[in-house]
Every structure is written in C-alpha cells, then in structure tokens.
Write a protein that binds this DNA or RNA. Sequence first.
DNA 1: CCCTGATTCGC
DNA 2: GCGAATCAGG
Length: 188
Amino acid sequence: MTEAVFIWSEATVARLKAMVEDGGSASDISNILGCSRNSVIGKVHRLGLAFARGWGQHETPAAKQKRDRAIAVKAPPRILAKAPAPKPKPKAPPAPEVDPTPKRWPKPEGPEAVDITALRAGLCHMPLWSDLRKGGLYCGKPVAIEGLSWCDACRQLVYEARPIRSQEEAQARAQRQVRQLARSGAFA
DNA sequence: CCCTGATTCGC
DNA sequence: GCGAATCAGG
C-alpha cells in the first residue's frame, strides 16, 4: 500500500487561503485539510500570508461565535422549549429549494467576479479556480451573513473535508473531473 | 498545560 | 519546498 502523501495542490492551497482569510486557526485548517498544524503554518509562511490574529492570540469568544455562526449557515433556530406555536400550515409547505450537493467549483469568470481592487467585505472571497495565476479573480457573490467571507456554494467547497487516500489517485480524479466539467460547460 | 503562531533547519 | 522540532506569547 502506497503511503498517502499530502501535497499542496492548487485546489488545496486555494482552500487554505480561503480559510486563513476567514480567520481559521492553524489547527482548524490542519484538521480540515488532513495535514499537520505545522504543515499549515509553514505553508502559510511560505506563501507570504498571515493568520488573521497574531501571535499566541486566542480567538475572542465573541469572534469565535460570530465565525462559527457564519460557518454554520443553517441550524441556528433550535426550538427546545415547547413553544405553543400556532402552527397554521394551511397548505403544504414548499420543500426547501436547497441543492444538497452543489459540488461544482465556481466559474472562472462571471458577471460578479471581481479582482483584488474591487473585492470588499460582503463579497465572496473565494479565489476563482484557474485564474489564480492570471491576476486573481474572486467569486464576488454577495455573502449571506455579515462577516462571512464566502457565499454558500464556496463555503461548502472550502469546508468539505476529504480523507486522503492516494494523493495521486485523488489528483488524477480531480483533474479528470475538472476536464469533464469544462467539456460539459460547467464553467461556461 | 491548554491554546496560539513563528522560526529553524535537516530533509 | 516541506514540516517536525522547537520556541515564544496568551
């Protein structure tokens, strides 16, 4: 069995960047990406990036709650108390129109894509796939919650932790998928 | 001792 | 370039 070797692929680096920008800690990111904390710190350093908070600074509870809430876009309204809700429901409620698996990388270009000069709070900060080397376009879609760095679709991409089996296999699969998506017009 | 990020240095 | 070991602050 070939040992799984972690590789900083372009996609992985994009996820790293996004999470760093979002204020994620080295530990958080390493757990999600499946590598060591030192690996994340070292990579961030070599990329010339910086973590949102400085040295030894623990995330303030307020900031953490805000970020956690932003990440957990759904779920907040927990109704544990037996609310005497009137519960009208005169007619069949429409099913949630949320696509459970929007597993597609954002389009390389689009009407909302912005460059670094136009990127601002409230717009999705997700770096767009293959244009990283071309000067960098960002998703630019409005975010759902203030303080959030990405739109829903991009957030799901970033926080989708993948178990690492064979790196070569994973990369080959990813490249195959990208080519197929390109052919099918997913980026068009 | 927990957490955090920073730095070094052999690979 | 990578990251374990080590260092340093909260």
